[in-house]
């Protein structure tokens, strides 16, 4: 009984020589390429999602106070330090503020180095002072009011809550992520269409054998089973091959990205759960191909006779 069920599930397809069709041989390659593209799209979407979430986690509840240097001359640095201390005193202990930390000059220079080069460390340019402010969760602090009062106390100061550019960046990454997922959807749609055309070609090529099967009493689902088993085999082969190629490509990108990760761009590495999601793609493709082949055959046969 188990053997018979196994045959029905996986070995059906012997009655119709579907493997001999040129169109079905191409299906392995097409599915393989589509799974490569689909895996890369899906990985891109997941990485972008991670990047956005990372930015949100890192910058949520944070403010940066910027104190611009105002005076030139020998006492400029002293004046700036004095204004920074005044700002710290203003901020520390205010309701809703958990931590206040002034960034060291070396740290500011390091942040600016990618844009200004090593000269930013040589005091060649007047550098602002930056104060990192951590807000208490759910503080509901009135940022515009805080900004106004600080500016009254210390002219030339400004508060950046990162909201404006973070929103823009998240909108951008969201759009790219949506595009990547749309591409994945289009790839799956194209794969579905390919299976439909291949199956229809198979039906046309083997119409005599199909008619014979009907005449000896085969039900439509017996014939459909042969096509779906064939589609399952081909799409699984193509899907696994495509997944392996995509995995190699993503691993290589990860290695390359490790050395060049800068600033806010994280390295291209996927988590275990993300790899598992990618591993589901060939399975999903096989499932789609199998169902598509079945539906195509059942609909086509229903239109006959």
């Amino acid at each position: 009984m188990k053997g018979s069920r196994f045959r029905k599930l996986f070995l059906a397809g012997r009655d119709l020589p579907l493997g001999r069709d040129a169109s079905s041989r191409f299906l392995v390659w097409i599915i393989g390429f589509m799974v490569i593209l689909g895996s890369l799209s899906l990985a891109s979407a997941m990485l972008l999602s991670d990047v956005g979430q990372g930015w949100r986690d890192e910058l949520a509840g944070k403010l940066t106070v910027q104190i611009m240097p105002e005076a030139d001359g020998e006492d400029a640095a002293t004046t700036l330090d004095l204004r920074v201390r005044m700002a710290e005193q203003f901020l520390v202990g205010r309701p809703g503020i958990a931590r206040v930390e002034t960034l060291a000059d070396s740290r500011i220079a390091m942040l600016l180095e990618p844009w200004l080069g090593p000269q930013s460390r040589e005091d060649a340019l007047p550098m602002p002072k930056l104060i990192d402010v951590q807000l208490e969760p759910g503080s509901g602090i009135d940022i515009p009011d805080l900004t106004r009062r600080l500016a009254e106390l210390i002219p030339g100061s400004a508060i950046d809550d990162h909201g404006v550019w973070l929103t823009r960046l998240l909108t951008l990454t969201g759009a790219v992520e949506t595009t990547a997922l749309s591409i994945l959807g289009l790839i799956l749609l194209a794969a579905t269409a390919t299976v439909v055309f291949t199956t229809r070609a198979g039906l046309a090529i083997h119409d005599k054998e199909i008619e014979l099967l009907h005449l000896v009493g085969a039900e439509d689902h017996y014939i459909a089973h042969q096509f779906q088993a064939h589609a399952l085999t081909l799409s699984f082969k193509g899907g696994i091959a495509g997944s392996l190629v995509a995995a190699v490509a993503l691993t290589a990108l990860g290695f390359i990205g490790q050395g060049s990760a800068i600033g806010m761009i994280p390295p291209i590495t996927l988590s275990v759960s993300q790899w598992l999601v990618l591993a589901l793609l060939p399975l999903a493709t096989s499932l789609i191909a199998t169902l598509t082949a079945r539906l195509t055959v059942m609909r086509s046969l229903a239109r006959m006779s």
């Binding site: 012997r14 009655d15 020589p17 001999r20 005599k208 054998e209 014979l212 099967l213 000896v216 009493g217 085969a218 039900e219 017996y222």
Partner: peptide, 20 residues
């Protein structure tokens, strides 16, 4: 005759039983 080319004599004859 309408035998299926790629099936052996045994498989051709078995066809009606198999589809049933």
């Amino acid at each position: 005759f309408r035998l299926i080319d790629h099936l052996s004599a045994l498989d051709n004859v078995a066809l009606p039983l198999r589809v049933a």
